[in-house]
């Protein structure tokens, strides 16, 4: 009985192999040779790690011993017994939901100014893009520490107007604003995407509406803005996803501490401290999963809400 079953399975296997090897449709195994690096990569660097990380998030694991299954305890600790975690959530939410709208407002504003048929568009566009190019680097974070330091150029400028400010970097409540402004400073890349979107709007829309007597403001509200909403949605989602994961500026500006008084303790910075400072890898994994869920939920919400305000032109 068993032998028969084995024989059947074996024959089935052979037939399947033959089918894979000599498939009519397509080029047999050849496509898989081209795909092999990617397939191995997905398996080794995405699929296996993602399941391992999910497993680790339910364990207590300090990198040296073996992971200890503790069920949901990591997740419970986070929300009930770790004020620092809640602080990191607070700082990150504030950062994302203040910096991204401001950044997009600047990006859209400048894109509209640059799109008014003036000369030198290419040069201006490149100059405004420079901060996006280097804004996430260690060099710029080092610069930012000085720009927003006690005697930095920001305070010197404010001093001219009679404001006496403390060091932004060293004062809780101010430090996160230095980071927010660093993000806003990088509005060049969403601006380029807005500019590309503005070019897609057919000029006869504007011509027709001016014949109807629409002024510039009306044109903006009834043509430009609705036509740009898909791009606005795209920019908002992309910037939101990347700023939830911001790490380098907070790390450098606070020298890895998230200080002063945890006021720049970004989510990923606290995750890094837990996972690679204290080697609480189980806890750090569950933090990573919560971040994943948060990003997923907000992306989903943005798409969901988009039915109401995003105009798709069919």
């Amino acid at each position: 009985m068993l032998h028969k079953a084995q024989a059947i399975l074996y024959l089935k296997g052979v037939r399947m192999m033959r089918r894979v090897l000599t498939r009519r449709r397509g080029e047999g195994l050849i496509p898989y040779l081209f795909l092999a690096p990617w397939l191995i990569g997905v398996l080794a660097f995405s699929a296996i790690p993602i399941f391992t990380s999910l497993y680790l998030s339910f364990t207590n694991y300090n990198f040296i011993g073996t992971p200890n299954w503790i069920g949901l305890r990591n997740y419970l600790t986070m929300f009930t017994d770790d004020p620092q975690y809640l602080q990191s959530l607070k700082v990150t939410f504030m950062y994302v939901f203040v910096a991204v709208p401001l950044e997009l407002a600047f990006a859209l504003g400048l894109a509209l100014l640059l799109n008014r048929g003036i000369g030198g568009l290419g040069t201006y566009r490149s100059l405004y893009y420079i901060p996006s190019l280097i804004g996430g680097s260690v060099a710029i974070a080092i610069l930012w520490r000085q720009v927003f330091g006690a005697e930095g150029i920001v305070n010197q400028t404010l001093g001219v107007f009679g404001f006496d400010m403390p060091s932004w970097i060293g004062t809780p409540g101010y430090a996160v604003w230095a980071l927010i402004l660093l993000k806003v400073w990088q509005f060049g890349s969403p601006m380029i995407i807005f500019l590309a979107g503005l070019k897609q709007i057919p000029s006869d829309f504007y011509e027709a509406s001016s014949l109807d007597g629409a002024g510039r403001w009306k044109q903006f509200a009834h043509i430009t803005l609705p036509m740009l909403t898909p791009i606005l949605l795209f920019n908002a989602i992309m910037q939101m996803i990347s700023s939830f994961q911001a790490f380098t500026p907070a790390y450098i500006i606070s020298e890895g501490t998230g200080g002063p008084v945890n006021s720049t303790l970004f989510y990923t910075l606290y995750l890094y401290q837990n996972g690679f400072g204290n080697f609480q890898m189980g806890y750090a994994s569950s933090m990573a999963w919560v971040l994943f869920i948060i990003i997923g939920v907000f992306t989903w919400l943005a798409f969901k809400a988009s039915d109401r305000w995003v105009h798709y032109d069919n």
Binding site: P49, S285, F292
Partner: peptide, 17 residues
């Protein structure tokens, strides 16, 4: 889909590996 996975979800198992 792999493009949408945050690095932080993968980095701990990768580090161990």
């Amino acid at each position: 889909m792999t493009m949408m996975i945050p690095l932080h979800v993968l980095v701990i198992p990768q580090y161990i590996m």
